[in-house]
Simulated scan of single mutants.
Amino acid sequence: MSKIKITIEALKSRLDSNGLLEVQQEEGYVDKMKVVFNPPATKEELQKLTFAVPKDYEEFLRLHNGGLLITHPEYGGGFELFTVDEVLEHRAIPGYDYPDNWFPIAYGYDGCYLIVTDKMVGNGYLYVMDTGYNFEDNMFIGMTFEDWLEKIIIAQGTKFWEWGFIIP
């Protein structure tokens, strides 16, 4: 079984009957958070993507065409993993000229976008871009989608990439 599948199945097994997960975050905050995975993307939907989709991200889309990760049921937050159509919608927002090989695949934390590229650099291809679409202030996080997904679940939805260490 693939890392994506193992990670998702392990997370699903920890959800209660309402799709909620008890998590502890910074400063001792404990609450039940919502996790939702959409149905799989169709072959037709996947063909709409205009870039070379990394294999692990494509596998995620084949399993779940987006979803919500560790979101408070009342207050929101967490990460919204985009559907194929939402990736294309966010990529086409007028006035935001993403570099050619950048595609926003998730949104969270009041304006933080997770960006997938079609070029592997070291051990990964993901960037995090904060509010404002400032391509100069993006952060390369040096990992693949499957590694990011596993780590954000282990970190219970927190911005683990800002914990003050460099990920190789």
Rank of each mutant, 00 (worst) to 15 (best):
Thr71Ala: 00
Glu59Trp: 08
Pro73Tyr: 08
Leu68Asp: 13
Thr71Glu: 11
Glu45Ile: 05
Val53Thr: 14
Gly67Asp: 03
Phe82Trp: 08
Asn65Glu: 10
Leu63Ser: 04
His64Cys: 09
Leu49His: 02
Thr50Tyr: 13
Leu46Ser: 02
Glu58Ser: 13
Glu80His: 14
Gly76Ala: 10
Thr71Val: 13
Pro40Gln: 07
Gly76Cys: 07
Lys48Gly: 02
Ala41Met: 08
Leu68Pro: 14
Glu45Gly: 02
Asn65Gln: 10
Leu46Asp: 00
Pro40Tyr: 07
Lys48Tyr: 05
His64Trp: 09
Pro40Leu: 06
Tyr75Glu: 14
Lys55Gly: 00
Lys55Phe: 11
His64Pro: 06
Gly76Asn: 09
Lys43Thr: 15
Leu63Gln: 08
Phe79Ile: 15
Phe60Val: 06
Thr83Lys: 03
Lys43Cys: 07
Pro54Arg: 08
Leu81Asp: 01
Gly77Ile: 09
Leu49Tyr: 02
Asn65Cys: 08
Leu69Glu: 02
Arg62Pro: 00
Thr83Tyr: 03
Ala41Val: 09
Tyr75Thr: 09
Phe82Arg: 11
Pro40Arg: 06
Tyr57Thr: 14
Leu63Lys: 02
Leu49Ile: 15
Leu81Pro: 05
Pro40Trp: 07
Asn65Trp: 15
Gly77Glu: 12
Tyr75Ala: 15
Tyr57Gln: 10
Glu59Gly: 13
Arg62His: 05
Phe60Leu: 08
Thr42Pro: 00
Pro39His: 12
Leu46Gly: 01
Phe51Val: 05
Gln47Asp: 11
Glu45Met: 08
Gly67Phe: 13
Phe60Met: 04
Glu45Thr: 04
